[in-house]
């Protein structure tokens, strides 16, 4: 059950950087860059880095310098994303964009960067943190965060959903499909798979 063989399930590597880049921006869903996400020989002082402090008591604009080596903390991931669009709007060709964090964070970042005109070849993603999934209920379009089990009850329509490996980058979500649609009531036991 753990490998459903579905090729849209994203795979991740390490942040390798790009020596040819004009400028490199790194987003981290955490207070620090986890050492294990950087490929060998990569020096993070080459990046402008944005981090998430998960704390409300940050000054409104703690550090506004935009330069390689600067680290700018945000209160939350949402706080960070609210500044990202404007930041990318001021960029030109040659930007490389990196993100490090859990899966929904990575693909939310991807969608903002795509909307700003970056192509996937200009981005790198490293997956760290919990493996919990964001699930899209294909029947009622409710999104659910933090799903760790093979089957989950939809908070929108109540359907017991099987968590497929089919992944939509646009929705930053895996698909949930009613597991007992053919024979109502035949719901297998949920397994803890995505921790």
């Amino acid at each position: 059950m753990s490998d459903q063989g579905i090729k849209s399930k994203p795979t991740y590597g390490k942040i390798a950087g790009d020596k040819a880049a004009r400028y490199q921006l790194l987003l981290v869903e955490g207070a620090e860059i986890p050492a294990e996400v950087l490929a060998e020989g990569v020096d993070p002082s080459a990046f402008e880095t944005w981090t998430v402090a998960h704390a409300s008591a940050l000054p409104a604009a703690p550090m506004m310098d935009e330069a390689p080596g600067t680290v700018r903390p945000f209160r939350s991931a949402s706080h960070m994303f609210s500044a990202l669009e404007e930041r990318l709007d001021r960029e030109t060709m040659g930007l490389r964009f990196y993100a490090v964090g859990a899966e929904p964070f990575l693909w939310d970042a991807f969608n903002i960067a795509s909307a700003a005109g970056l192509s996937q070849q200009e981005m790198q993603f490293a997956h760290v943190g919990p493996k919990a999934r964001r699930i899209y209920c294909v029947h009622c379009r409710t999104l659910m965060d933090g799903v760790t089990t093979s089957i989950v009850t939809c908070t929108g329509c109540g359907a017991p959903l099987f968590v497929r490996d089919h992944f939509s980058k646009r929705l930053a979500s895996y698909m949930g499909v009613q597991v007992d649609a053919e024979a109502p009531g035949e719901v297998p036991a949920a397994e803890e798979l995505y921790k």
């Binding site: 579905i6 849209s8 294909v138 490996d165 992944f167 939509s168 646009r170």
Partner: peptide, 18 residues
């Protein structure tokens, strides 16, 4: 699902095919 697939690449939307 078209709503789920819109924007996907050829390899991604064919992901579930065995």
């Amino acid at each position: 699902s078209f709503e789920f697939n819109i924007g996907m690449s050829f390899m991604e939307w064919h992901g579930p095919v065995p």
